[in-house]
Design a protein around this nucleic acid. Sequence first.
RNA 1: GGCCCGUUCGUCUAACGGUUAGGACGCAAGCUUUUCAAGCUUGAAACAGGGGUUCGACUCCCCUACGGGCUACCA
Length: 430
Amino acid sequence: MEEKVRVRFAPSPTGPLHIGGVRTALFNYVYALQHKGKFVLRFEDTDKDRSEAVFEESIRQGLKWMGIKWDEEHYQSKRAEIYQNYLTKLKAQDLTYEQDGGIYFKTPVENKKIVVKDLIRGQVEFESKDFDDMVLFKKDGTPTFHFANVVDDIDMGITHVIRGEDHLSNTPKHILLYEALGAPVPQFAHIPLILNPDKTKMSKRTGETNFEQYIKAGYLPEAMINFLAQLGWSPPDTQDFFTFDELVKMFTLSRVQKAGAVFDIKLLNHINHQYLMELPFKEYVKIAEPYLDTKADKKLVGFALKLVQDRARFLSEIPELTHYFFAEPDYDAKLLVFKKSSPEQTTKGLEVALEVLEGLDDKAWDIGSLQQILDHTLDASALNPGDLFWPIRVALSGEEGSPSPTELLEALGKAESIKRIKTAIKKLNV
RNA sequence: GGCCCGUUCGUCUAACGGUUAGGACGCAAGCUUUUCAAGCUUGAAACAGGGGUUCGACUCCCCUACGGGCUACCA
């Protein structure tokens, strides 16, 4: 008979949700789904001074955003009685003693080999003589992490402990506790740490660890899942993009990397960029619009969003990519002149453009007609494409990189386009 | 210091004794005869070092180096 899988994510709410925590939660959740088990969320809030409700909320919100759903929610601060009960079992065996108001666990006097069977690392051996007696209860009466963590994992029937590698060295101590309490030892899987570019552990102090900032920056959950899943794990084939369901099907702890993984924001950006481009326009608008703080009319906003959908890597990049749609751009006159063109040629190009555009009826102001009329103008003149198209684009956007001139013309409309082209001509001839 | 874990292109990684060491990001070049983006093509780029084991090691063992984690009445 196979035991029903129960895993947990046990963050301490002493700070906003950590990016590494999200990955740990993801691996646990995926494992639970794969084995039709349960995923438990347990707040390890035994540090009264540092735990805060806002951080609990940050953790809940972040998990929800990722699409991670938990079957149970627990708080260690509400389980004092349970810890006392388990302590009684230890006391009855004379395995504890009091000192300085704290309660300690007696590490076995005789040295003993402790084997951690890790699903990722294999068997890791320790010796009990290397461990000091550990504190079970602090003098303020609350249990320590080690004790509360083990008691809860026993009490909640946790079968698989999937957590960060930083806990590997704590595991033998935990095993001692499981044994003393006569409880079965769960399966362990220690996943590699997420590292800074300099390979040090990514911590609150050293990196961009606050998960809220990624949500705010406008990354998509799908992209984040893809990215985090491949930070320390790799699919059995060379598939780079996969859905959550596919991840659940493919995931195995045996394919989890042993070495730490550097957090590479460029890769995240790339993955997000791909997802953003493939998003149906309507869905994209829905999530992108809030990032645009403008009172401009809907049509223009629609144009702006459409024209940068394949350019934005994450949503919060959109305002800077679209500023010229909503306000006249400021730029250096030199930018109007294409590589091998000259100010004279450029002026000529803009003037010709101005003339034909002014002659185009407002009703015919669409990208098809615009392209046609400009192509025709180019053919009929002695100008190079760079004398005509480039300066129009710059006149309208003020940028080195932007959508095409005709797209911009159509989006901005006749009046605004003409105005900006006139400004450009003036700039050139100051 | 002690204990433990780790080490393939700059980065994320594939390889589970026999490969020209593969892919992706990033970078560079070219194409797309208007930029940027997208897309396509191409290129540079790695087995930490030294010993073994083996007919044969990125793959197994040992040593060294380097990196990391733990060693709290934080979790």
